[in-house]
Amino acid sequence: MIELENVTKVYRMGKVEVPALQGVSLTVQKGEMLAIMGPSGSGKSTMMNVIGCLDVPTSGRYVLEGDEVGRLTDDRLAEIRNRKIGFVFQTYNLLHRLTALGNVELPLLYGSGSNRRQRALEALERVGLGPRANHRPAELSGGEQQRVGIARALVKSPSILLADEPTGNLDSRSSIEIMAILQGLNQEEGLTVVIVTHEADIAEHTRRVVSMRDGQVVNDEPVRKPRQAVSIGEVRERR
């Protein structure tokens, strides 16, 4: 489903060339849940951008669901992001003047399809935020904002959910909630989830950890006993 083959990425900073990825190969099967770990500067963010089709590799091959993505135009990449990839960001990246519902509708604006409102509402209900649909981000807690972010990532039924430090700005309780949702989506619906993190205990919630350093994959192993976060239902019951 995701095949990276000897991918390199070189950034130009003026006259200096900065290699961010130096020959990375990685294969991710459908339905996997993995964490990409590494210290800052290890190239994990670049990896995430390449997988998310926000950027193209300098060399190497990237095949996403059978499509060679590496050499596509900006507009084709935008289309693929719209159809196949759901992003979850560390800082949520919600638009403040839109309601939760409006934010979730956003990906639906850039593609065909009807019943935008209905589909957005369903996505919000999946993350347990149906009743908060008409609240603006400022009226929501950090955890709730991130759940809106997840709903937005889900609304187009993507092939991959890419989460970049999804719990980085959250307290531990909200972090657990978010991980519970991501685990639920992976285990119950078979959604492929890729999480970029530097927190080991977040990585332990996945089933495979890819470690990176200096733009290379240094370690790639399954998590022997994945930690199970409590599901949304349980969170709700506990309240």
Binding site: G52, L54, D74, D75, A78, E79, R81, N82, R83, F87, N93, L95, L106, P107, L109, Y110, G111, R152, K156
Partner: peptide, 16 residues
């Protein structure tokens, strides 16, 4: 700028 980035990540094309 950030809004533009978000919209682009969500699949907005240049034309949009």
């Amino acid at each position: 700028t950030r809004e533009i980035g978000i919209r682009k990540a969500m699949g907005a094309k240049r034309r949009d």
